[in-house]
């Protein structure tokens, strides 16, 4: 009963399809701007130049308040930096080490194996420094939000003037991509916030797209190899499916 099989599969797929946006949309009332991303689709890849620029935006703009706790300096090799460059970048950070022989903690320049240090010692300090609002860690932010990349891009570009009927309390900011529209994070990107060595545009859109690329990488650093293996696996299994179908027909031919 082939009909049954098809019906089941489509129905369950439909159920998942219907349910997942419903599950993840949360506020559901905001419209996201779709960016152009190199990492989507079966042949998706990371644009290394964009990742490097995005890392620069992260360092100059975001890192003041937000950590990236699952990224170590050594991981920056994915961005196209060589060993010497990674050592130089690492050395710009100070990390706490210890205890030393006297039992004291001490600061030393970071090494490639060190995690990029968080701006705050702990969550309480982070909250206290930001009017009680906790700035989320950015390592996984692109996967921890529905439609992550488009959401981040839209959020960074979503700081517009509040409509006249909207009351914006002190310490809050109006953002048209944020669920509920009131966000504690002040506008981070205005354009020309950083200066790019490669002369890429530093418009708000350019900066936002670059940092979004970087954050997608930090959330899913294995994306490229995943898709590469995926294409091979799907190719192999498609052939396997066709062959097993004909092998089945051959075996069953005995019966008729």
């Amino acid at each position: 009963m082939r009909k049954f099989l098809i019906a089941s599969v489509t129905a369950i797929a439909a159920m998942i399809g219907l349910a997942s946006p419903a599950m993840s949309a949360g506020g559901g009332d905001v419209k996201l701007q779709a960016g152009e991303w190199s990492f989507t689709g079966p042949f998706g890849y990371f644009d290394k130049a964009a990742l490097q620029r995005g890392f620069q935006v992260y360092r100059d703009v975001c890192a003041g308040c937000q950590g990236i706790d699952y990224i170590a300096c050594r991981n920056l090799a994915d961005l196209g930096y060589n060993e010497a460059e990674i050592k130089a970048i690492a050395a710009e950070y100070e990390v706490m080490d210890g205890p030393d022989d006297e039992g004291e903690m001490f600061m030393r320049p970071a090494r490639p194996a060190d995690i990029i240090p968080n701006p705050y010692r702990n969550d309480n300090e982070a909250r206290a420094s930001n009017n009680g609002a906790m700035p989320p860690d950015l390592s996984l932010i692109a996967k921890a939000r529905a439609n992550g990349p488009d959401y981040l891009y839209s959020l960074l570009l979503g700081y517009v003037d509040a409509p006249t009927n909207q009351d914006v309390p002190d310490g809050m900011h109006y953002n048209n991509a944020y669920s509920g529209n009131l966000i504690a994070m002040p506008q981070p990107i205005y354009g020309d916030d950083v200066e790019y060595a490669d002369g890429s545009p530093t418009t708000p859109e350019g900066l936002s797209a670059d940092v979004t690329n970087f954050l997608m990488w930090s959330a899913e650093p294995k994306l490229e190899v995943r898709k590469r293996i995926g294409v091979a696996a799907v190719f192999f299994l498609s052939i396997f499916l066709v062959m097993s179908y004909f092998a089945k027909r051959r075996v069953w031919a005995d019966l008729h």
């Binding site: 192999f236 052939i239 396997f240 062959m243 004909f246 092998a247 051959r250």
Partner: peptide, 16 residues
Amino acid sequence: RRDFIVVATYAMGAVG
């Protein structure tokens, strides 16, 4: 040739 496809399918499964 049709038996070949049976053997090849098993072989492919083993490789996978």
